[in-house]
């Protein structure tokens, strides 16, 4: 661990050259492995943060823990897919520590990112990507580049993307800004070292969930085991139905890309359409037409197709048949 200075934030303020410590469930591990080497660490985990209603919207302080957020009655009633997503991630111990702001900024679990002896453009820009021809079962099928095929591991961020959440930040110059959750994280392109669009020292202060979310919501995570495991792939769906017509359709996919993947092509295929199994298949196929497997992860394409179709089937009650 490279020596660093540590201070505890008194108030939510941003300054350049600083890394923020939330629950530390990911950053501290990465510091021990010297994958992350912050020189100044500012602990923002104890800044006051709560969950409050504001004009129908919900405002979540960045320091609210995943455990608290998942258990909040308002969240469970109106944004149930967010609660489900949070509870499907990590373990209760980790959720007790992990924060809302920090969850967005957790880093990929790519084996080659974690092994400092291996080439990784995300860890060391320009060094190459050993995952391309390596063990890449967990890697991206959408929006990847020849520089990086890593996926973002968060469940919460997928839910936030589907719910059209907004992230409020303050920059080092004191200016605030609002970033759609869908755009907070980015695709790798030729700069996979940048997971997100935040500037140096920019601090997430709160997350806003818009009022009147779609009534029908579902989060489903496909995982290798029932206990603590990152998603193989996951889906968040939110939509309204009126006279069997789908409206306000929002779909986000996890485990498929460098960021939570808003399935806009599928959304377009479904918006205004009658609930129908063939429409679901068309939507899935539209979304996956550009999907690329890298070997070990080829199976993600048919799995995601099945996941989109069955999630839509369930969220629209096309099939009343539920798993035991």
């Amino acid at each position: 661990m490279t020596p660093f200075s540590f201070e505890r934030a008194e108030k939510a303020s941003a300054s350049a050259g600083v890394r923020y410590l939330g629950g530390g469930t990911n950053l501290v591990d990465l510091m021990k492995l010297e994958i992350e080497r912050p020189e100044r660490l500012v602990d923002v985990s104890r800044l006051p943060g709560d969950i409050r209603e504001s004009d129908g919207a919900i405002v979540i302080g960045a320091s609210v823990t995943n455990a608290a957020l998942s258990a909040d009655p308002l969240i469970r009633q109106r944004y149930s897919l967010l609660s489900t997503a949070l509870l499907s991630g990590a373990t209760q111990q980790l959720r007790n520590k992990a924060t809302t702001g920090g969850n967005f900024l957790q880093r990929t679990r790519c084996h080659y990112f974690y092994d400092t002896a291996r080439a990784c453009n995300k860890r060391e820009p320009g060094s190459g990507c050993d995952a391309l021809e390596g063990h890449n079962r967990f890697h991206a099928i959408l929006g990847a580049s020849e520089h990086c095929i890593a996926v973002h591991p968060s469940d919460m961020a997928v839910a936030m993307a589907a719910l059209d959440a907004e992230v409020r930040t303050i920059k080092a110059d004191g200016e605030g800004r609002t970033i759609p959750a869908t755009d907070l994280l980015r695709l790798p392109g030729d700069a996979p070292e940048r997971d997100h669009v935040l500037d140096d020292g920019e601090l997430i202060v709160e997350v806003r969930l818009p009022a009147n979310p779609p009534a029908r919501q579902l989060y489903r995570k496909v995982r290798d085991r029932a206990s603590y495991a990152f998603a193989v792939v996951s889906i968040a769906v939110a939509l309204d139905m009126e006279d069997n017509v789908m409206k306000n359709v929002r779909i986000a996919l996890g485990g498929v890309a460098h960021k939570p993947w808003r399935a806009e092509k599928a959304e377009r295929a479904l918006e205004g359409a009658f609930v129908d199994a063939s429409v679901f298949a068309q939507a899935a196929d539209a979304e996956l037409q550009d999907a690329v497997g890298r070997g070990d992860n080829d199976f993600k394409i048919p799995i995601v197709r099945r996941l989109i179709i069955t999630a839509l089937r369930d969220v629209t009650d096309l099939s009343k048949e539920h798993s035991a």
Partner: peptide, 11 residues
């Protein structure tokens, strides 16, 4: 990883 002889999922 058979290119390097290293185990990759070491946690």
């Amino acid at each position: 990883d058979m290119r390097f002889g290293s185990f990759m999922n070491r946690d």
